[in-house]
Simulated assay, not measured.
Amino acid sequence: MEAILSDPAGAVIGLDFDGTLSPIVPDPAKAVIHPKAPGVLAELGAHVLSIAIVTGRPPATALELGPGLADVPNLVVLGHYGFERWEAGRVSAPPPPPGVPRAEAELPLLLDSLGLDGVTIEDKGRAVAVHTRRSPDPEGALAALREPLAKLAGAHGLVIEPGRMVLELRPPGMDKGQALSLFLAERNARSVMFAGDDLGDLAAFDAVRASGLPGVTVCSGSAEVTALRERADIVVDGPEGIVALLAELASAFSRS
């Protein structure tokens, strides 16, 4: 933290989206960024090397759910775990993997065969997510789905990304840790912070430590996932705590 405060122009601030910048809600399509986040990030972005939102969502979706983000200085959105990138109004990405739509086409029949109520499918373009949060027994539905979804993913050359009441089928070869590591090297970062809330963010925590840079990891705390809390340097209370921490940083930069 001292390195970030003393040399903000060399700092990359990495952030997850859902559960970190926006509260977790039953319907992912209705998630919305914390109302103070865009303003705080705009102030922060004027001082740091870069702000990188690293998310499993497509960049366009993160920007849609975060009005004002597109105007944040030095912002890059690494979506689909880094497969897709938004920067300065442009999105770049390789061709979408064919296994995702094939797996998605088989999901309704699979879910019907398991007799699970309240389980929903989210089309994420380069991935497909199966949510159990609205099921009468979210944990039980998640447990029942793990093995069948793993077999379905394997049959189509995909991998499973577990999360908070969700299992996501996505292409292999990239995760938040790899995306963050590549970005730090590209920008010649001199320090790094990463904040997340879910199991997929553990790889980014590992990347902070493996980077060799002065770094700090932050957990957006929840009762649903404790693994990050145990690994984080700083634990705050959800998106409200994340925004407060970022506001403190921005204020410190403005005073220096």
Rank of each mutant, 00 (worst) to 15 (best):
A88G: 03
P162W: 05
A60V: 11
S92A: 11
L65I: 12
L109D: 12
M174E: 02
E161W: 04
A103C: 09
L63Q: 07
V166T: 06
I160Y: 09
K151M: 06
P67A: 04
A105I: 09
A62C: 04
R134S: 14
A143N: 13
L107R: 13
G79T: 13
A150T: 15
E106V: 12
V128A: 03
G66E: 04
L65E: 00
G177Y: 05
V100E: 06
V166Q: 04
G56T: 00
V159F: 05
A144D: 04
L69R: 07
G125T: 08
P101A: 04
P171V: 03
E147G: 07
A93F: 11
R85C: 03
L152N: 08
V72A: 03
S92I: 13
G163P: 02
G177A: 04
L107I: 09
L116W: 12
T120N: 09
L65M: 09
L109W: 15
P172Y: 08
V72C: 06
R102H: 11
D175I: 07
R134P: 00
E104P: 00
L158T: 09
P98V: 04
K151I: 15
D123S: 11
G173V: 07
S113M: 01
P95R: 06
L69N: 04
H80M: 08
P94C: 04
G163R: 05
P95T: 08
E147C: 02
R170L: 05
W86D: 03
P58N: 00
R126V: 04
R170C: 02
S135M: 08
K124F: 02
L109C: 11
P95N: 07
A93W: 14
A141V: 12
V100I: 08
S135K: 10
D71V: 14
A150W: 15
H156R: 07
E122D: 06
V130K: 06
Y81I: 03
A141M: 10
P98Y: 11
P101G: 01
R164M: 02
G115I: 11
G66A: 14
K176E: 00
A155P: 03
P171M: 02
P101N: 10
G68T: 13
A143E: 13
E64G: 03
G89D: 09
D175K: 05
A144H: 13
G154K: 05
G125M: 08
P172L: 01
H80E: 15
E87S: 10
R102E: 09
V119I: 13
A127Q: 09
G115V: 10
L158F: 03
P67Y: 10
